Simulated scan of single mutants.
Amino acid sequence: MAMTSRFLSRSAPRQLYGGKAIMQPEQTILARSYAKEAAPKALKGDEMLKNIFLEVKNKFETAMGVLRKEKITIDPEDPAAVSQYANVMKTVRQKADLFSESQRIQYTIQSRTQNIPDARTYLLTLQEIRIKRGLTDDLGAEAMMMGALEKVEKELKKPLMRNDKKGMNLLMAEFDKVNQKLGIRKEELPKYEEQLEHKIAKAQLEELKKDALEAMETQKKREEFKDEEMPSVKSLDIRNFL
C-alpha cells in the first residue's frame, strides 16, 4: 500500500473541480438557463483577495470533509461504483456550493454570450465553447441548428438579431423541430443532466485509476518496493490517503 499513497496528491483534489467527458452538446446548448448570479459588491483589492482565498479554502475543506467520510471504489467498469462516485461528488457539490458540469457550461454560455447581438455569432460562440471543453457533437446538432438559422434568415431576408422577437420566435420554433428530430424533450432535461454527470463520474474514475496505476508502477521501480505485490486499484480506500 505504501507505493499507492502519492497518486492522490495528483488526482483526488482536481476531481473536485474538473474533468472532461464525452456528451451530446444539445443537452447543454438547448438546456434550460440558470439564474444569473448577483453582481458582487465592489471591494478593495486586498479585501477581495482575502475573501476569494477564504471562500476557496472553505469550499475545499468542506469537499475534503465529505471525501473523508464516503467510500469510493476506483472501478470505472462497475456501474454501481460509478453511481456511488457520482452520488459522492453530488454531495460534495451541494455541501461546498459548487457548480455541476451542466451548470458550469450554462454559466459559461451566459457570460460569454450576453453581449452578442446576432444569432449567428451566438451559435458560433456555442460551438467554440463546446470545442474548448472537449465535448463532441456526434449527432450533428450544431449543423441542424445552423440550418434552422439560415432558413429563418432567408425568410426574414436579413441577419437575425437577438432583440428581434418575431425572428427569434421563428428560430425557437425551428429549434423545437431540431429537438424533436434528435429525440430531445425539454421535460427530460434533468435526466440528460444526470446522464452527463454519470459520464463525468466514469471519466474521473478512469483518470483516478490511471493515475493510481502510474504511481504504483513508478514506485515499484524503486529498490525498496521491488518485492512488494501491487494491489488491485479497486481495493484501495482513498480515505486512507486524505
Score class of each variant (00 low, 15 high):
P25T: 01
K191R: 15
L182Y: 06
I72V: 15
A39C: 00
V82A: 07
G18Q: 10
M172H: 12
M23T: 11
E47M: 06
L205V: 11
Q24L: 05
T73S: 05
T125V: 00
S111H: 00
G134F: 08
R32N: 10
S9T: 09
P40H: 02
G147L: 07
I238C: 03
L171K: 07
T91K: 15
L124I: 05
I105N: 01
E207Y: 09
Q110A: 12
T91G: 01
G18L: 06
K177E: 14
A96K: 01
Q106K: 09
E214I: 14
A201Q: 11
I200V: 14
G167L: 05
I52W: 07
K234I: 08
K234T: 09
E61Y: 14
V66M: 10
R133P: 00
S235E: 14
Q195H: 07
V88E: 02
L205M: 09
L196G: 01
I72S: 09
Q180H: 12
L67M: 10
M144H: 03
G65H: 10
M64Y: 12
K57T: 02
D97E: 14
L156R: 04
N115Y: 05
I116N: 07
D137Q: 00
N169I: 09
E128R: 12
N163K: 13
M172D: 12
L213Y: 00
I22A: 13
E77K: 14
A143C: 07
P190T: 14
K202I: 01
T28A: 14
S33H: 13
L205S: 05
L16I: 15
D176F: 08
K95I: 12
E101H: 11
I238N: 02
H198V: 04
M1E: 07
P13W: 13
D164H: 03
E188V: 09
I29G: 01
E47F: 07
K50P: 01
V233M: 03
T73W: 06
E174Y: 03
E101R: 12
P25V: 00
K181V: 14
G65W: 05
F53N: 08
P25L: 02
K210T: 06
L67Q: 06
L49V: 04
E55C: 03
K132S: 12
K209A: 15
I116L: 13
R133K: 13
E37I: 01
E224A: 12
F225H: 14
R32I: 00
S100V: 03
D138V: 03
P76Y: 06
I200G: 00
E197F: 03
A86V: 04
A96S: 03
R222S: 12
T108K: 10
